[in-house]
């Protein structure tokens, strides 16, 4: 897999070259915007790692020129600019992801893999991680060492929660997601549903956040209750 690295800083460039080579990517490294544009136009890359502050031509201009020319190569912006506007601008003109300096090598490699997966159009058939996940094809939930089939309502509940893991949903938000607008919902319907999932998988599968609602935490946080 061939990676184009557009980065003007010598030390960062060298370190990234080494890290990417260690991860078995072949890397072309250019140090200014114009050379970067020439490289993007000349060769087929699996992914482009693009710094924004470049001599000759800024990363934003380079990206804009590439997208205007119909080049759909995956682009991951690496930048020290963390204001919301630059982030939005970068993503708006066609970057696939945005990584803020300083970052760890592990995170960069994970983001590259994620960008490539998205580009390849992998259908998401599983929500969650290794500690808790929902298999969308078989409608099974895995939590720790427990695996079980869910009822339609339970599946809808876990789907809603695992679609945005870590996000806290209030009772009314869950009701809206499960029952749709304007339907008459019994006041304890959500509690009954959560109780039945917990009965199968244990208390820790769905976390109650006092005063706010419920959430699912990835990463195997131990059951607190």
């Amino acid at each position: 897999m061939r990676v184009l690295l557009v980065e003007d800083d010598l030390q960062i460039g060298q370190s990234l070259m080494r890290a990417l080579k260690d991860a078995s990517y072949s890397v072309d490294w250019v140090r200014d915007g114009l050379a970067g544009r020439a490289a993007v136009e000349a060769a087929e890359y699996t992914v482009v790692l693009l710094d924004l502050g470049l001599p000759g031509m800024s990363g934003i201009e380079l990206l804009r020129a590439a997208r205007a020319g119909g080049n759909a190569v995956p682009v991951l912006i690496l930048t020290a600019r963390d204001d919301l506007d630059s982030r939005i601008e970068g993503l708006d003109i066609g970057a696939d992801d945005y990584l803020l300096k300083p970052f760890e090598v592990g995170e960069l490699l994970a983001r590259i893999r994620a960008v490539l997966r998205r580009k390849a159009g992998y259908a998401v058939s599983r929500l969650g991680d290794d500690t808790i996940n929902l298999n969308l094809d078989q409608r099974t939930l895995t939590f720790g060492d427990k695996v079980g089939v869910l009822s339609a309502r339970e599946f809808a509940l876990m789907h809603a929660l695992l679609e945005h893991p870590g996000t806290i949903f209030s009772r009314s938000q869950i009701e809206d997601k499960l029952y749709g607008w304007g339907k008459e919902v019994e006041s304890n319907a959500v509690d009954v549903l959560i109780h039945s999932v917990r009965k199968k998988f244990g208390q820790g599968v769905i976390r109650n956040v006092r005063g706010l609602g419920w959430t699912v935490i990835l990463g195997g946080a131990p059951a607190g209750e």
Partner: peptide
């Protein structure tokens, strides 16, 4: 600092 972080990671 980014360079330092990457060097350490390497």
């Amino acid at each position: 600092l980014t360079a330092l972080q990457l060097q350490a990671d390497n």
